[in-house]
Amino acid sequence: MNTEMICRVEDLGLVDYEDAWACQKVQVDRVRAGGRPVLLLCEHPAVITLGRLAQEKNILVSRETLEHNGVQVVAVDRGGDVTLHAPGQLVVYPILPLAYWKKDLHWYLAQLEQVAIDLLKSFGIVANRISGKTGVWADNLKIASIGIGVRQWVSYHGVGINVDMDMELFDLINPCGLDARMTSMARVKGVTVEMRDVKECLVKCFHRQFNLPMIYAPVQL
């Protein structure tokens, strides 16, 4: 392995969607210029994002209702339909030079699914894939959502894992346009799940799946 291929991990904490999106773009340019891969971890205040294939009808309430509930709506440059982020959902944005591993979008999506499956297994949750529906499912309920962007084979956007969050927020949308019902780690386990523990485990699972040394280091927003 190239000794320079070390992944920097940065925990952005609770951060506005658009600030994290701007941060990702800066990191993509750095990685394209030969910089180290970066794994951004964060949570977002409640926000609905529309991927490139999003249909407005998958937002089930009026914009006024969303505004009243303090939920932003942002159109973004990732694949997929409508999704929702909120505090208590771990959002993971890997900025990786995919050519180092494989120039294959399906391979990368499957890698991300596997990281989420391994993470959930560590918490005693059996999760799996459903053929033709990208994401990770526990008892046919969606527990992790995936949508990515790629520029010059450098990845951005990523995975949202429902850790311990207000699940009623998902009533605002038809997640991914799939009529899927959602769940969370806390709901499956029936107990509170600490975000800090999930983040720590995620970094380990990511390290194993991508065979990539990880260091915690700050990046500039």
């Binding site: 991927g51 490139r52 294939l53 440059d77 990732r78 694949g79 997929g80 979008l105 990368y108 999506l109 990208t134 995936i146 949508g147 990515i148 962007g149 790629v150 520029r151 010059q152």
Partner: peptide, 18 residues
């Protein structure tokens, strides 16, 4: 050279063609 000039989308991924 290498500008992202067109974005394509396939299910869960967007891809920029340089």
């Amino acid at each position: 050279l290498d500008d992202d000039i067109v974005e394509v989308v396939t299910d869960k991924a967007t891809f920029n063609v340089p």
